[in-house]
């Protein structure tokens, strides 16, 4: 500022302009301003700023009407808040419901036991896989989100079409053998004599307590009770699938194998009397024929005889 006016500062100028200064202070400011054009300019600048920073109140606006307009808006807002509130709870309920459904599906809904009894049964499993059970067979299935595997216990015979899920191996336990599926179609059969696994497509891993083999399409493994090593072999023919295709497909199949299947299918008791007949290969396909018709075809083919005895049919 100026040597002569050491106590003049911006604070005092503001006080002066706002009418807060005392009489002596005011006189001092006025003297200071008139002593120098720069001083005057500074004071005028401040005055201009103070004048222009006042709010220009618009007196044409009625605040009561403005309040009415505000209240109308608040009412709308309230409705939309209620709407949001309802929406939020609907979302919460939906989440709880889906979580419950998820738990139910994976804990309760993913367990299944089926016994085929006297008929062939086609069963869709909870994971989307399909199991076709031969007569007198049963399976139980345990899977779902909370299990690391899809575990199947099988008694008897079944054909599986397994839906792909790499994170959950499909494992079939039968006798003391475990079949782990890598996504494929295959047949598993077990009885007192042993277990047979035949693969139609894809890859199947078969293991018992000591050994394991990988089977690819067209291969099979036969495991008898207490056998240690597993040896795979080429599968001849497609006879094994008669119970879900309803066809007997023989492709150079030994007669003895066909007879075993016929006995199963028709609950008959066919016996091959002459041992030399057992290995005779037969290549044909039967569809829906009766046992008698089939036997007729066999006798025609090999020129052999059939004896229908009581509870036993003999091939000579």
């Amino acid at each position: 500022m100026d040597k002569n006016y050491t106590n003049i500062n911006d604070d005092l100028l503001a006080k002066y302009l706002l009418g807060e200064a005392t009489m002596p202070e005011s006189e001092e400011v006025e003297a200071w301003a008139s002593s120098n054009p720069d001083h005057h300019k500074r004071l005028e600048d401040f005055r201009k700023i103070l004048d222009n920073s006042k709010l220009q109140i618009d007196h044409s606006i009625d605040e009561h009407q403005a309040l009415d307009r505000l209240n109308i808006r608040l009412q709308h807002e309230k409705k939309s808040i209620n709407y949001k509130f309802v929406l939020r709870w609907a979302a919460v309920i939906a989440i709880i419901f889906s979580a419950g459904l998820f738990c139910y599906n994976n804990l309760v809904g993913n367990k299944l036991s089926v016994n085929s009894g006297g008929n062939t049964v086609t069963q869709v499993l909870p994971d989307g896989s399909t199991a076709i059970l031969n007569k007198q067979s049963s399976i139980s299935f345990v899977g779902g989100f909370f299990n690391k595997t899809r575990a199947v216990k099988l008694k008897g015979e079944a054909f599986f079409k397994v839906s792909a899920d790499k994170s959950k191996p499909f494992i079939i336990s039968i006798n003391d053998v475990q079949v782990t599926v890598v996504g494929t179609a295959f047949n598993v059969r077990g009885d007192k004599k042993g277990t047979i696994v035949i693969v139609e497509s894809g890859i199947v891993k078969v293991n018992n307590q000591k050994d394991s083999v990988r089977l690819t399409a067209g291969e099979k493994v036969e495991v008898s009770q207490n056998q240690v090593h597993l040896t795979k072999s080429e599968n001849q023919g497609k006879l094994y699938n008669y119970y879900y295709t309803n066809e007997l497909i023989c492709d150079a199949t030994p007669l003895t194998e066909l007879v075993t299947v016929l006995n199963e299918k028709f609950k008959s008791n066919i016996v091959i009397v002459n041992p030399s007949l057992k290995t005779l290969p037969i290549s044909t396909t039967f569809k829906n024929e009766s046992l008698k018709e089939i036997l007729n075809v066999i006798t025609e083919t090999f020129k052999i005889k059939v004896d229908y005895g009581q509870n036993v049919i003999k091939l000579k």
Partner: peptide, 28 residues
């Protein structure tokens, strides 16, 4: 509180946006 402050707040909004109706909406 609204009645007390509405006019000055409205005037303040008006100094910034220069629109009477919108100034009221802003205060609202």
């Amino acid at each position: 509180v609204f009645l007390k402050h509405f006019k000055s707040l409205h005037a303040y909004a008006f100094t910034i946006i220069r629109e009477k109706d919108d100034a009221e909406e802003i205060v609202q």
